[in-house]
């Protein structure tokens, strides 16, 4: 049974928009991080995420079948058409919040990519196989930093706890399944995200415990990014910079 192409497109946009928007956020650090090694590492992370975006959105554009490119999808859609989880579009905050956001995302990607490598869709499996090597490195690095800062000084601990309190309500959206996910699961393209929660909680719980951080008790989860129903106010500003040249000078080659 052929999978509904519109649903496959939505699934691919969710992948590509996550890496695009987070890659953009991370790239905002350029030249401003606490130490030179981190400037290098953050640029490298952003570069990997943009590279993954090219693959996801490239495939999305193929599936869409309107003759568009990955660049068209990245630079010419408006906010309501973006399918990234809200977590990725949140402002960087301080270095601790940026790295904690990165860890919460990397941990999800590390669980998801492992499953997507076995996707019934060959292109999805190939992209996941390539991305998973990068993701394995990212999650190791961001986890180390979260532990180091959480279990560092009194100040670094306090800042990390504050960052966790801010970010945690955005984690639940990773696992909010809908009919797109159901169709992907049925076709063997991707797992139902709800089924990844246990593995995610185990991984994240261990690292946050090592970091001496306390996961907030509230189970409340913000949502609206992966469906596009309601993004944060931050996304529009991000797109304003990101898309400016393409909007101001349409139809050019760069």
């Amino acid at each position: 049974m052929a999978v509904d192409q519109e649903k496959l497109l939505q699934f691919l946009l969710r992948q590509g928009d996550n890496t695009l928007i987070l890659g953009h956020r991370v790239s905002e650090w350029c030249g401003h991080s606490p130490i030179l090694e981190e400037d290098i590492a953050l640029a490298n992370t952003a570069l990997d995420l943009i590279g993954q975006t090219q693959m996801w959105l490239g495939y999305a554009a193929d599936v869409q079948g309107e003759g568009k490119s990955a660049d068209d999808l990245a630079f010419l859609r408006d906010a309501w058409d973006f399918r990234n989880v809200l977590l990725t579009e949140l402002p960087n905050g301080d270095f601790g919040r940026t790295l904690l956001r990165q860890f919460l995302f990397d941990a999800f990607q590390s669980v998801l990519m492992g499953r997507l490598m076995k996707s019934s869709d060959e292109t999805v499996a190939a992209i996941a196989a390539k991305a998973s090597k990068e993701v394995a490195y990212h999650v190791e690095r961001s986890a180390d930093t979260v532990v180091g800062l959480g279990d560092g000084t009194e100040e670094s601990h306090a800042r990390m706890q504050e960052a966790l309190n801010y970010l945690w309500p955005y984690v639940g959206e990773f696992f909010a399944s809908d009919d797109v996910d159901a169709a992907m699961a049925e076709a063997g393209i991707a797992p139902d995200p709800a089924s990844l929660r246990e593995e995610y909680d185990a991984l994240v719980g261990k690292v946050l415990a090592d970091a001496t951080l306390t996961i907030p008790a509230s189970k409340y989860a913000h949502k609206g990014g992966r469906t596009g129903y309601m993004h944060t106010e931050h996304l529009g500003h991000l797109l304003t910079s990101m898309q400016w040249l393409q909007r101001a000078y349409p139809g050019c080659e760069w």
Binding site: L36, L47, I50, Q54, Q246, W254
Partner: peptide, 25 residues
């Protein structure tokens, strides 16, 4: 970097800036 006009240009610029920081190191 945040205003690079295409994904490829953004990737090229990120890689360059990463190299420059590496030269510094």
């Amino acid at each position: 970097i945040t205003r690079a006009p295409t994904l490829e240009r953004k990737a090229i610029l990120l890689a360059k800036v990463q190299d420059e920081a590496g030269h510094g190191l």
